[in-house]
Write a protein that binds this DNA or RNA. Structure first.
Length: 254
DNA sequence: TGGTGCGTCGACGTAGTTTC
DNA sequence: GAAACTACGTCGACGCACCA
């Protein structure tokens, strides 16, 4: 049973979400919090939650601020529900590495499938090994800091400028490290190569953009950093198993 | 433990073709 | 004509051996 914290300021809409799906049947234990962001952080620090859901209906920017505060202290999965479809908000949410964003109108089927996806992530061996790594592996603070800097650079670059070319060489130069050394350290720490990490970040962002916006496929490709469409097509199909167009159709028919 | 050099191979860019 | 998709050559990331 996974413990979820549902945060919102609007009692009516938050209650509506609470009754939208059978949380217990899905394997979740739900705690609803209608308090201020400060008391949310207190509750978060006091109890051990598996993931967080933020009701964006009335929180809007406060919801994103809360998201930002949580990201500073934890990599816990975050699901945003009930906001509007403003691309800038979705972009900011992506920058904060939220796991999914379901804008209004939220329907139970969509919410359920998103919850099951996060549940899958939580139970995956990779997630567990990574979590354990973060908790138990004795990595020096310096190495840890370097890798965090690399990851932050990637996430910032992905959201700051269109078509920006992200290379490990450039990051290594900026941090005054050898490229090979950084590559090696990254794999040791993250259990995946720099390219695998970059690909994952790009594909997750592309999936969200295809699901939540009506951007053209070449626009999505550019937005996630692919100058050439062909490579985006190849990588997207390899990553998801279907091509971008089909993925959007399937996401739209859910 | 932190760092470098170098060979290999996959990622990416260029230049196309196909589909609607 | 625009968008979606493909083939192939070039270059950068990875992995390994090695050094301080």
């Amino acid at each position: 049973m996974y413990k979820i914290l549902l945060i919102g300021s609007n009692k009516h809409s938050t209650e509506a979400f609470r009754h939208m799906v059978d949380w217990n049947q899905l394997g979740f234990c739900l705690t609803v919090c209608l308090e201020t962001p400060n008391s949310v952080m207190e509750l978060f620090n006091k109890d051990r939650f598996s993931f967080i859901i933020i009701n964006m209906t009335d929180l809007k920017d406060k919801g994103l601020q809360l998201c930002e505060a949580l990201r500073k202290i934890s990599s816990i999965p975050i699901l945003l529900i009930g906001g509007n479809k403003d691309f800038q908000i979705i972009r900011k949410a992506l920058n904060l590495q939220v796991n999914d964003y379901i804008p209004d109108p939220v329907n139970p089927t969509e919410l359920k499938s998103s919850l099951l996806l996060i549940k899958e992530t939580l139970s995956s061996a990779h997630y567990k090994s990574n979590t354990l790594l973060h908790l138990a592996k004795p990595i020096s603070n310096q190495t840890s800091d370097i890798i965090e800097k690399v990851k932050n650079y990637v996430n910032r670059s992905l959201n700051e400028s269109l078509s920006k070319k992200i290379t490990l060489k450039e990051i290594a130069d900026q941090l005054n490290y050898n490229c090979s050394y950084l590559s090696h350290k990254f794999k040791c720490r993250e259990n995946m190569t720099f390219n695998e990490f970059l690909l994952k970040q790009r594909m997750e962002k592309a999936k969200l953009l295809l699901e939540k916006t009506d951007m053209k496929i070449y626009e999505v490709a550019q937005e996630v950093g692919y100058v050439e469409l062909d490579w985006f097509y190849k990588k997207f199909k390899t990553y998801t198993g279907v091509n971008a167009n089909k993925y959007r159709q399937l996401a739209g028919s859910k």
